[in-house]
Nucleic acid binder design. Sequence first.
DNA 1: TGGATCGTTTGTGTAAGACAAACCATTAAT
DNA 2: ATTAATGGTTTGTCTTACACAAACGATCCA
Lengths: 160, 160
Amino acid sequence: MTSLPVVNQPPHRCGALLGQLTRRLQLRSESVLNPLGLRPRHLIALTVLRDQDGSSQQDLAKTLEMDGTNVVGLLNDLETENLIERRRSPVDRRRHVVELTDVGAKLLARAEFALAAVEDEVFCGLSDDQRETLYTLLQQATNKTEFEACTEAIQPPPTC
Amino acid sequence: MTSLPVVNQPPHRCGALLGQLTRRLQLRSESVLNPLGLRPRHLIALTVLRDQDGSSQQDLAKTLEMDGTNVVGLLNDLETENLIERRRSPVDRRRHVVELTDVGAKLLARAEFALAAVEDEVFCGLSDDQRETLYTLLQQATNKTEFEACTEAIQPPPTC
DNA sequence: TGGATCGTTTGTGTAAGACAAACCATTAAT
DNA sequence: ATTAATGGTTTGTCTTACACAAACGATCCA
């Protein structure tokens, strides 16, 4: 049952491992993020915003793959803490353009710095190089998935 | 010159990316797992069990970093579907030794096979080689973290 | 002018999971 | 032998993170 002349698929999928690691990371992150007034999903939102600054809320909802109404609540949290700003888009004034404030960017940096210890603990099985590789892979996967160009070969936006 | 004058930490942490990717993966996984009568956490439990077959429930709780009472519920689900078996440990009959049944192992394999499409979609930004690397890294990180050797074990601070 | 779109609010429902209390069976300590 | 501790189980309560629907205002567009 163990030794197979593996022809095609490697039988193992990443999903479970990914889920498991994420859980471990988030459990520990909560206590670190708590004193900063953040929760894991806030951090995710801020991270996305750093990469996609000036997105509309729909863009964010799509990137986060999260219901629009919940995105509103999430952004409300961040806005009352002055971490983000909502401005009316000049081109279409229905839209809100969401932007990271200086405060937000700094808090994000502080949070990431504070999370170093957490990641050291969870990723202690990996060398520094391996962690760097992991980061790169995750980044690459995340960005590429952002536009659903993978599934829909139709009208690919500039990238992907 | 690949080496920069890196003074401190690279400012980016994996946590947010990991969380994001996991969410994307799980959202899509649900619909695939649903017809099999599984949910993401069941899959995680089965995956852990494949690696740690014959664990006690406390071991599982520790690995899954999940409350004991909830592990009971999780295992109840799996047992009523005949995916796992609980047997009394002969060495300490208070303990339950949890084991994957044949049915469970086969369903797990089927689930993983069915998830191939999902991972293809989410990891479309990565080549096959990169996906393999990712899997290896995740596996390595997960296993090493299992024993809390990193944090406990010795006195010296976080240079595990 | 009327219909679609973006954001917002409110409200309902569900699932995961933490946590506590009480229980049984078993084991270990005295 | 009695007692205390342990592994598992059940029940029940609480919180959080969502999804989803409905209704609204503002804006755009035809």
